[in-house]
């Protein structure tokens, strides 16, 4: 049977966009896990707080009459600063005191933090769905391709790619990156050679939360709506993607996200969207059976 190539292409880009969205959140999960071996369940909520901050900032700046480009950049900066400070504070309050506790304790603390943040935003802001402004405009040059891949899709794809490259660069070639890798390998040894482990862990949370904030801005702008609960479902999917790619690995998180996005998109397109999650999670189970540490993950018996 001849494949309908146009349809395939549409589904492919749809899956790619979805993958890039998951990746923006998954990167934060995987970084934190890589450094301290903790699944930070509150990460989805940081993404949600980023989206809310961007919403508030964008509304204020557009009332003040700023140009569109300035609004998106300023809203992004506000969201990054706000979310990063939340990430930093969460680590200090909820995880640092439990660093030497059994592994289950910080995990429960993370779940508690997630529930707390959801309800905090619910009470402090609203339980309603809010219309998120289309911060990313429809580019004229994209118009001929709009039916396949829209302007927001392109911006999300490009941002995710750039962020992945920068992150890889930071971790591989900078001093902070080196210290991060050392901390990940052996925390005691890292302390002995003069690395301030606490500061490195804080830095990890700040970077991860900043990425989530950027994700919050871009994804909310793509979907066009936010509420206090968006972090939960997006977070679960991103976490799945991170595990799929090998949790702890930066390229793995992106690869896992893209594979998950494409699987969901093709399952919807060629089978039925009723089975979207069935296919996505079957794939996860299959990969974990044959490669328990994920596609690009390193086997590390001590941590599992």
């Amino acid at each position: 049977m001849l494949m309908d190539f146009d349809y395939f292409r549409e589904l492919f880009f749809s899956g790619l966009t979805r993958g890039a969205i998951y990746a923006l959140i998954a990167l934060g999960y995987t970084m934190v896990y890589g450094i301290i071996g903790l699944i930070n369940f509150a990460h989805g909520e940081i993404y949600m707080i980023g989206a809310f901050t961007a919403f508030i900032a964008a509304t204020i700046f557009s009332i003040l009459g700023f140009p569109a480009l300035a609004i998106i950049i300023l809203a992004g900066v506000c969201a990054v600063i706000w979310s990063a400070s939340y990430g930093y504070t969460i680590e200090k309050i909820a995880y640092k005191p439990l660093r030497h506790a059994p592994r289950l304790s910080p995990l429960i603390s993370a779940i508690g933090m997630s529930i707390f943040l959801q309800n905090y935003v619910l009470l402090a802001q609203t339980s309603d769905f809010l219309p998120f402004p289309a911060l990313i405009p429809d580019f004229d040059f994209m118009e001929p391709y709009a039916h396949i891949v829209g302007s927001t899709d392109v911006v999300i794809l490009a941002t995710t790619t750039v962020i992945m490259i920068i992150l890889t660069f930071i971790i591989k070639y900078t001093k902070v990156g080196k210290a991060m890798r050392a901390t990940a390998q052996d925390r005691t040894m890292a302390t002995l050679v003069g690395i301030n482990v606490n500061r490195i862990i804080s830095a990890t949370f700040i970077i991860g939360s900043s990425l989530a904030a950027v994700g919050g801005l871009l994804i909310a702008s793509h979907i066009g709506q936010i509420n206090f609960y968006i972090g939960f479902i997006a977070g679960i999917k991103a976490f799945t993607a991170a595990v799929l790619g090998g949790i702890g690995s930066i390229p793995g998180a992106v690869l896992g996200s893209v594979i998950l996005g494409l699987t969901e998109s093709f399952a919807t397109g060629y089978v039925s969207s009723d089975y979207e999650d069935v296919f996505a999670f079957s794939l996860l189970v299959l990969i974990l059976i044959f490669k328990p540490s994920g596609i690009l993950g390193k086997a590390d018996n001590q941590k599992v």
Binding site: F13, S14, T17, I223, S273, E276
Partner: peptide
């Protein structure tokens, strides 16, 4: 469709 999904473009293409 799955409620809460981040992107519904695949179903729209379908």
């Amino acid at each position: 469709v799955t409620p809460g999904g981040v992107d519904y473009s695949a179903i729209v293409q379908k």
